[in-house]
Design a protein around this nucleic acid. Sequence first.
DNA 1: AATAAACTTGCAGCCACTGCAAGTTTAAGG
DNA 2: CCTTAAACTTGCAGTGGCTGCAAGTTTATT
Lengths: 220, 220
Amino acid sequence: MTPIEQDAPLGRRDLRKQQTRAALTGAALRLCALRGFDQVTVDDISTEAGVSSRTFFNYFASKEDAVLGDHLVEVDAMRARLAVLLPTMPVLEAVRRAVLLVVAAMEADRDHWFLRMEIIQRSPQLLPRLVLSNAEAERATTEQIAAHLGVDPIAHGYPALVVAATSASFRVAATRWMAAAGRLSLGALVDEAFSGLAAGLPDPDIPPPRPRAGAPVPPG
Amino acid sequence: MTPIEQDAPLGRRDLRKQQTRAALTGAALRLCALRGFDQVTVDDISTEAGVSSRTFFNYFASKEDAVLGDHLVEVDAMRARLAVLLPTMPVLEAVRRAVLLVVAAMEADRDHWFLRMEIIQRSPQLLPRLVLSNAEAERATTEQIAAHLGVDPIAHGYPALVVAATSASFRVAATRWMAAAGRLSLGALVDEAFSGLAAGLPDPDIPPPRPRAGAPVPPG
DNA sequence: AATAAACTTGCAGCCACTGCAAGTTTAAGG
DNA sequence: CCTTAAACTTGCAGTGGCTGCAAGTTTATT
């Protein structure tokens, strides 16, 4: 998504490919935010981007992919960071810090993400696919943590549990971030969520506007 | 899914509808487990179930729905149970106990769930839709907890966080359950996952069978 | 038995998506 | 500069998911 300027050899061919890809995602996001996801055909997007609909499918495997993006780059970066962090701190803390990479990428791509939010809100069918793009990453991270701990990733539930819980927390933070239209820092929201996790999700202290019925009995 | 025998008025019409629906899901699960999800057409399923493909879409909105089911009943039951439990115990504990209802439903429907697992493993595209069916339920539960705590569900992150984390934990437990082909109790796996959550996901104590290679040296 | 309601089905059609076989553009080597 | 190979685009034809419509058929109602 974010136009990445690498020192890699960029012939005018690869340059044009990047342009086309950007044009397609741009058109997809713009049109879908305007009309709603299923009121936009692949042909609309392709025409808006100035290519044929057949070409669209040379760039994206599905209409949804064009809207949601792939985010593979960040995933790889996160895996590398995790590898460095895991040996030096508790798992949960390592994951928290690694996730900050994704936070940075999303904050850098604010505009696209806000459009995505609008589109997803109108077409909830998209939300699961967004989760799926994480699913593969989650599986890999689970194995990475299992390897680090020296346990079997299916016999032992911990690695999968940490990954699933942190991933869910991240999603909650991202949702709040987009709901707040960026008035809050995504990083701060993520930190808040991870703190809640690390504390074991205790009932929050509510500044008591009014007491509720049925006494909450602290266990133990 | 599970044939529910209510005292409700069951004319031979509603009876036949139930039969058709069961035949369709049965055919869908059987065929997809055998050949793989996208090697089975709606026509195959309909023919196997003895109805036209047009009728298929009178019962299910999509091919995926036929395989994954809807699970609306359990969701409603869980919501009711939560309403009773919330005022008398911490949120996390209330959710844990409410989830046991879903656990019971799944254990009662073992066979279908194991087929679903096989199918989903071969066609990971299905996993997100399974998550989506939960998404609506999660939103409702979040609001229920927010109302109980007397906080605004978007200003305050706790309700969404608890729901997302517990939901993810449940998914992990279910995955392990299916991976173990039912040799373990789903209830026990869920309890284990919730315990990990309540403890704040600390690094597990690994019984050290052997030190692993590539020495991760914990710094002082 | 007559009427209304519910259910099934075929048909026509939209759209996402794919493989194939052109045609066109760019890169590479002499 | 010219040639050749590779890469990219595109149209075409076809599959399959999914929908609305307009019968036709079955079941419930009075």
